Amino acid sequence: MCQDVIFHEIYSAGLLGEISLGLKRDTVEGLLGEPQDISVSSTPYILNYGSLQLSFSSNDPHATLQSIHLYFDEIVEFPHGLQLEGWLPNKSVSAEEFLIHAEHFNVVLEEDEQHTFKNPQIGFKSKADVIVVFTIEEESVKLYSIHLGKRPR
């Protein structure tokens, strides 16, 4: 049986390869290497690796990973240190296609009112609090981003 690692790990367990919330910044940089870009502000401290954006509580090397963002365009780029297997969507994936794929792998995504704005976007949330956002462009609904952040207490 072929298991779709990306769907299982991100949407069910809240993992992206070896990257998970709570990891220290120096550990993340050890796994992924030098970021392509670093935010100008110190709070949150954001590392950019192509399509992947990682936010930390501060610029301290021991600060913890607070959120993971994946942004989708025609080309999706990840750091070489991130090993992903399985179906990886891109911007051209429609909401309907994405939801069918999620259902096929038993990932339940429900519409999320907090991330839905009737025109320009629709948001969905998984049980692991992963947010999936689609933009509404003319007659089509296309994948924009996937976000995983610390759960509110």
Rank of each mutant, 00 (worst) to 15 (best):
F72G: 05
G30T: 10
D129S: 11
D73S: 13
I131Q: 05
I68N: 00
E103Q: 10
T43Q: 08
V76H: 02
K127L: 11
Y11E: 04
S67E: 10
H62P: 01
S41F: 02
E18D: 12
G149M: 07
Q66P: 06
T116E: 12
S41V: 05
S94W: 05
L70E: 06
V132Y: 02
E77P: 00
Y11K: 05
L99S: 09
D37E: 10
V28S: 00
V76G: 06
G17C: 13
M1L: 11
V28I: 04
F134W: 08
Q66E: 14
E113H: 14
E111S: 12
P79W: 02
T64W: 01
E74A: 14
L70K: 06
E85Y: 11
G81A: 08
I131A: 07
Y49R: 03
G86N: 05
L65G: 04
G14Q: 06
H80L: 05
S41Q: 14
P152F: 13
S58V: 04
A95M: 11
K142S: 11
G86Q: 07
E138G: 09
N119S: 15
F78Y: 14
G149E: 10
S57W: 01
S41R: 04
E77F: 00
I146M: 13
S55R: 02
S67V: 03
L47W: 01
H69D: 10
E29K: 02
Y49K: 00
F124A: 06
E34H: 04
V130L: 09
D37P: 00
Q83W: 06
D129M: 13
V5A: 12
L65P: 03
F78S: 03
E74L: 15
E110M: 10
T135H: 15
P79M: 06
I6C: 08
Y144V: 05
S12F: 12
L52Y: 04
G17D: 06
Q121F: 07
Y144C: 12
V40F: 05
V93R: 09
F78P: 01
N119L: 13
G17A: 11
Q36Y: 02
S41C: 10
V107W: 05
K24L: 01
T64N: 09
I122A: 10
L32H: 01
I100F: 08
G30H: 06
I100C: 15
D37V: 01
D73R: 12
V76C: 09
L148I: 06
G33K: 02
K125I: 13
L82S: 03
I131C: 14
I146Y: 04
L15N: 08
L31I: 07
Q66Y: 04
F72M: 08
S92V: 14
L23N: 05
D4R: 06
I75L: 14
G30P: 03
L84M: 14
Y49A: 02
E137S: 12
Y11F: 14
H80C: 07
E97V: 15
L99C: 06
D73F: 09
F56R: 00
T27Q: 11
G81Q: 04
N106S: 13
F117H: 15
K142Y: 09
E97T: 06
R153M: 07
L84C: 09
L23H: 11
V40P: 00
H80Y: 09
S41G: 13
L16H: 02
L23P: 02
Q66M: 14
E103I: 14
F72T: 03
